[in-house]
Design a protein around this nucleic acid. Structure first.
Lengths: 163, 163
DNA sequence: TTTACATACATAGTTTACCTATGCAATAAT
DNA sequence: ATTATTGCATAGGTAAACTATGTATGTAAA
């Protein structure tokens, strides 16, 4: 056990033991609740749309053209996973691959019109399924909650440039 | 296209088209943000703990003893998935199976002491990993956010009995 | 400029987490 | 008693992820 360390000198960045214990607890609860909500929502509104497609297309919509390795990094997945995912999207006609003129090793992935339509339809479906079960909720409250989650993710991505 | 329907008579419960369009949009955004936060957090704090174990043990801690089919339902998974999951947890010594005295077809699954320890340690690790990157956040704000997500899930589970 | 290393992506092979379909035993309903 | 239903187990399959590695291109050092 390390609980007998001198509190004055125990700021070891590896263990994080100098953080607020209350914060540790509520952060663990937060991810539990976010994860459960996500799982329940996707069981209700999932349809048969591949969730990796939604993630990748959302990123491409947000950032424009992306390299394979950038997709992997932004999606917290490995490069081979991103390669396979892009292949599926190309086969489905939702994205297009182009060589980077400045670096012929690289590939730039862009959404097609069909990809934009697919993503919009997916979001409509998800929103409609959920709204049907939650029609009494206040949209502005949900919007605020959504923004909080967004901000928290930005902070988690890089604590220095946000928050 | 169904966009030319008479708005007065288009309250078809199958399509949900009578719900607030703004609500549909923000709900779709909410699940996107919750899902992305979950994914990022688990890539940071995931460790190598099986996520299904965390889900199942959290349910058992919350509800006490549960049947296989109850675990499946509460976890939004199929019964065979729950059977396999419980088998893994039994093999790891984290839960114990007992026959239901009132119904000898049924199985009641309960956490062992080891299971409680495992879950507590997992949460400590997750909380510590996240708190290390987010040490400047206000714990009470996170707690409120966490509660909102919890309440929203309760509402989504059964819109009539919560809100 | 040849050699060496780094980067970007592709491919192979494996594991994990699910699913559906089905079988079997116990209970409930007629 | 027969039939239907319920609770779980098993079989078999798919999708999404990983690591390890190969190949081609770009970069830097000798």
């Amino acid at each position: 056990m390390a609980t007998t360390n001198d509190p004055e000198t125990s700021a070891d960045p590896h263990t994080g033991d100098d953080t607020d214990p209350r914060l540790r607890v509520v952060l663990a609860e937060l991810v539990t609740n976010a994860s459960r909500l996500t799982r329940l929502a996707s069981s209700i509104a999932g349809g048969d749309r591949p969730r990796p497609w939604l993630r990748a297309l959302s990123l491409l919509e947000e950032y424009g053209g992306l390299r394979i390795s950038e997709i992997a990094r932004l999606d917290s997945s490995s490069q081979p996973t991103a390669t396979a995912l892009v292949k599926q999207l190309v086969d489905a006609g939702l994205v297009r691959r182009q060589r980077d003129p400045d670096d012929s090793r690289a590939v730039v992935v862009e959404m097609t019109e069909s990809g934009h339509h697919w993503l919009a339809a997916a979001r409509d479906d998800i929103g409609a399924s959920l709204a049907e079960r939650m029609r009494d909720l206040d949209a502005e409250r949900i919007a605020r909650l959504s923004r909080s989650l967004h901000d928290l993710r930005e902070f988690l991505k890089d604590p220095r440039t946000s928050g």
